[in-house]
């Protein structure tokens, strides 16, 4: 089943589950029934999700109740228009969850406390966001929540924290976070963030090459991101005189992206490191 089929199935499943819940009224919710709320949220139906989570919050099962409270927090951040008071209510829900356990919902709540400070509240608070992310990493380093937070903490380190830091110090601080990456996609994100910051601060571009090579090896980029990686590696390798490596990545780029708008430019630069390749067929 592909992602779009999954969306369709989720939509149908969500409607069926929601209809069932509405019919049953205020029954005591069990864990599986909250799935309808999550599915509703994936389809931007926050009001529907809030009703599901409201039922779940009354559950006798403490785990279900905690998941429902966590779900309500997410729904509050989704329901349009998202007001400052909704954000505040969500923050309070997440704070209570984070401070009352160590389960998945406590970790997710800690992640959201960081994200709210980083992006959801009106005035961002990078220091608070970093504090929450660091606590999450300190307590649950290998969890999905900590690994998801790692790249976002890297962004704070690269652009927002420590105003007195030089660009090189920012890069070094972000590189230290790599030791806490345990999931390829998380490490790949941090490495891409570092490479982009090297370009942004106009540091010697060659410093980005090892990060780009590692990110490509780790995988996890979407198709457009991977096209960027392949071409950036090829270009930096060419400029560093690493002809064989440059050629390998130009070929990979051209093979995987035969219709990219940079096709001609890439072929011309490839010709500098090995004999020319033919143009793609067609217009």
């Amino acid at each position: 089943m592909n992602a779009t089929e999954h969306i369709g199935l989720c939509q149908r499943l969500g409607r069926a589950l929601f209809a069932g819940l509405a019919f049953m009224g205020a029954v005591t919710a069990r864990g599986g029934e909250l799935t309808a709320g999550w599915v509703a949220l994936t389809n931007y139906r926050a009001d529907e999700a809030m009703q599901v989570f409201a039922v779940g919050a009354q559950a006798a099962d403490a785990r279900v109740a905690r998941e429902a409270r966590f779900g309500r927090g997410v729904a509050l951040l989704t329901r349009q228009p998202v007001t400052a008071s909704q954000v505040e209510e969500a923050r309070e829900l997440f704070r209570a969850l984070a401070e009352s356990g160590t389960d998945e919902f406590a970790q997710g709540a800690r992640f959201y406390l960081g994200r709210i400070a980083q992006h959801h509240q009106e005035q961002p608070d990078p220091e608070e966001a970093a504090r929450q992310f660091r606590q999450l990493l300190a307590e649950h380093e290998r969890s999905v929540w900590a690994q998801s937070a790692l790249g976002r903490l890297a962004l704070l380190q690269l652009y927002a924290l420590d105003p007195g830091f030089t660009p090189a110090q920012r890069i070094a601080a972000a590189e230290r976070l790599l030791a806490q990456a345990h999931v390829p996609a998380a490490e790949g994100e941090v490495r891409v963030a570092i490479a982009e910051a090297i370009f942004y601060y106009r540091l010697p571009a060659q410093l980005a090459l090892p990060h780009l090579l590692a990110a490509e090896r780790l995988g996890g980029s979407d198709r457009a991101g991977r096209a960027d990686l392949l071409l950036q590696i090829a270009e930096l390798s060419r400029l560093a005189g690493l002809k064989a490596q440059a050629a390998r990545y130009y070929h990979l780029f051209l093979r995987e992206n035969p219709r990219d708008t940079a096709n001609y430019n890439a072929r011309m630069h490839l010709a500098e490191v090995e004999p020319p390749v033919p143009a793609p067929a067609g217009p």
């Binding site: 989704t78 994200r115 994100e189 963030a193």
Partner: peptide, 27 residues
């Protein structure tokens, strides 16, 4: 996309959940 990523995570069966949330792309 934060909220969609978290909702999609919990909407998926536990065995199919990713090791990292699919948040908005890094770029």
């Amino acid at each position: 996309e934060d909220n969609i990523a978290v909702a999609a995570y919990f909407a998926a069966p536990p065995a199919a959940r990713p090791a990292k949330l699919e948040l908005v792309t890094m770029p």
